[in-house]
């Protein structure tokens, strides 16, 4: 147990059932496929406009990108802790961690708002060039997913508060958690693509 914890290896016990139900995983896969197509479009357009796309990231607010990455990773941590609390039957603790997730989601929206305002002040908008068109398309689409994720977290909180979930049966909450992690997974690829790689 100690070895598997320290080296982050899966425990050598029989395979458990996956969290959430198959419908949630189909939705998660549909969303991931949608973003994968955007990434491929980004790579193709970049190949045809190398100069534009090597300058693009230098014109963005890297601090905002880093901050939002940290915020989203922290929000995923909060969701994981909320699920862990529910597995122990601690609904109050679960709700606190879900509040933390909502706070992180709000912080993400605030940073994104600041970043768009910063771009606007620097004279960049979605029509500036192809890089910025794709940047706004990808990031605004992701922002909409964060908003939907926040609504589902809120719904999960209401149901947790009214006792719809228990230590033994909380599949709905697992679905909510998986959707939120999907949003984080997408950002893990958006961040290097838009802000880091030159």
């Amino acid at each position: 147990m100690l070895a598997s914890t320290l080296f982050l290896r899966p425990p050598s016990t029989p395979l458990r059932a996956s969290p959430a139900n198959i419908a949630v995983w189909i939705l998660v896969w549909a969303e991931l496929t949608e973003f994968a197509l955007f990434f491929i479009v980004f790579l193709v357009v970049r190949a045809h406009n190398p100069e534009l796309f090597s300058q693009g990231p230098t014109q963005l607010n890297t601090q905002a990108g880093v901050l939002n990455t940290i915020i989203l990773l922290t929000s995923s941590f909060c969701v994981a802790r909320a699920m862990e609390a529910m597995q122990r039957g601690r609904k109050k603790s679960c709700l606190y961690w879900l509040w933390g997730t909502l706070a992180m989601g709000s912080a993400y929206l605030a940073v994104k708002g600041w970043e768009y305002h910063w771009n606007d002040a620097a004279g960049f908008d979605s029509r500036t060039n192809l890089f910025f068109t794709l940047y706004y398309y990808l990031t605004f689409n992701h922002l909409l997913h964060v908003l939907v994720g926040m609504c589902t977290i809120g719904w999960g909180m209401v149901r947790t508060y009214y006792g719809y979930y228990s230590q033994e049966d909380h599949e709905g909450l697992e679905g909510v958690a998986c959707y939120w992690h999907m949003i984080d997974l997408v950002w893990i690829l958006i961040f290097p693509l838009l802000y880091v790689l030159r």
Partner: peptide, 15 residues
């Protein structure tokens, strides 16, 4: 991505 999927999503050791 692997760390989030395995440990935060909790898929390590699942089907």
């Amino acid at each position: 991505g692997k760390l989030v999927i395995d440990w935060l999503m909790g898929l390590a050791g699942t089907e």
